[in-house]
């Protein structure tokens, strides 16, 4: 029995650490194509249906006298691009977190990053109303750092160390605390209305200025993640192996943590506390392309973008003219997925 177990272990290890570049390339190409198509569809549907030709012409030869062009350019395009960006941010931050903590349940929502960012947003709205968007991003980033710091700090204080389940429990409690605090602040300063959007999640308010501001940061973070992707793969094999292979794990983990915080903070500052994207997408991606993070990171960025664009499209279509919060829609997908992981995980969780 023991021998059998050993053999299957070796087997699974072989399977786990192989990568599938062909499939990954297909996903990148197909995913990009799907992303463009779904962005097109999402832009053309809405309160006023606009055909694809008009969508195209509004992009290539914008005419600011046409209402339909204005709707596309000023309202729909930024929100849909925002959705794609946010999905990519959450998915990549989730991939990195799952890789470097070797924790299958890592996600910016579950580990308190989103609640932390929402808490700091509550503070910034209460004490510095009318703050420029750049500072809001900064606050959101600081909040994500606060949430993550609390969860990981408490998680590492527990006996037996950073086990996934402890982190999730700590994340649930820290989130409850931070949400309670931000609700208290919201009630006292009468900003519940402004904040409700951040709790429920939605990209409807996205503007070009916001995208222009965050895009460079996101690109830098992605490039950083890509350049460290090889190290993530090695760290995901285990701390000892990584050190044995000559990785300076502390330094690399520090940089990666900063990248995770930037991505999650930006995600929350655009869409609000949307969870589970960073949980679902990395798992699906790893299942498809294997465990090489050079492929996982770009693939999960594309798939994450696709998921949130589709969720946003669904959110507008389910109950028009009202919008269903994206966070709720994605949670309805994410919860069964989480349950499946919790069931499958068994002992190592």
């Amino acid at each position: 029995m023991a021998i059998l177990k050993k053999y299957t272990q070796v087997d699974t290890e072989d399977v786990i650490y192989q990568s599938r570049p062909v499939i990954a390339s297909i996903i990148i190409m197909g995913g990009l194509f799907g992303l463009i198509v779904s962005i097109g569809i999402s832009v053309s549907f809405g309160a006023a249906d606009i055909d694809m030709g008009t969508v195209w012409s509004s992009i290539v030869q914008y005419n600011d006298e046409l209402t339909s062009h204005q709707i596309i350019q000023e309202i729909r395009l930024p929100r849909v691009l925002g959705a794609a960006l946010v999905g990519a941010c959450f998915a990549v931050s989730g991939s990195i977190m799952q890789g470097i903590t070797r924790n299958p349940l890592a996600d910016s929502g579950l580990l308190g990053l989103n609640a932390g960012a929402a808490f700091m947003l509550a503070i910034s709205f209460a004490f510095f109303p009318g703050m420029p968007y750049m500072y809001i991003i900064f606050f959101s980033f600081a909040g994500a750092a606060l949430g993550a710091g609390l969860v990981f700090g408490i998680g590492s204080m527990t006996r037996g160390g950073l086990k996934p389940v402890r982190l999730v429990l700590a994340g649930a409690a820290v989130s409850a605390l931070l949400i309670a605090l931000s609700e208290g602040i919201a009630i006292y300063y009468r900003i519940s209305q402004d904040l409700a959007f951040w709790h429920a999640g939605g990209v409807s308010g996205t503007k070009w200025e916001n995208l222009e501001m965050v895009a460079p940061l996101v690109i830098v973070a992605f490039l950083g993640a890509m350049s460290l992707s090889k190290s993530i793969t090695i760290i995901s094999l285990g701390e000892e192996i990584a050190i044995g292979l000559g990785q300076r794990t502390k330094k690399i983990k520090f940089f990666l943590a900063i990248i995770v915080l930037i991505l999650a903070g930006i995600g929350v500052s655009i869409v609000g506390a949307v969870g589970f994207v960073g949980l679902i997408i990395p798992h699906i991606t790893r299942f498809l392309v294997g465990h090489d993070y050079r492929w996982i990171i770009p693939c999960s960025a594309i798939l994450g973008g696709l998921l949130v664009v589709l969720a946003d499209f669904g959110a507008r279509m389910i109950n028009p003219p009202l919008e269903t919060p994206i966070g709720a829609l994605i949670a309805l997908l994410g919860v069964p997925f989480f349950l499946y992981l919790a069931r499958k995980g068994g002992e190592e969780i």
């Binding site: 349940l105 389940v165 429990l169 649930a172 949670a331 309805l332 989480f338 349950l339 919790a342």
Partner: peptide, 20 residues
Amino acid sequence: VRLLLTGIAIAAGISAAMIV
């Protein structure tokens, strides 16, 4: 452990349904 994880997930799902 599984009981707690399941509970957390169910609570998240229900609050999402509640928002809708």
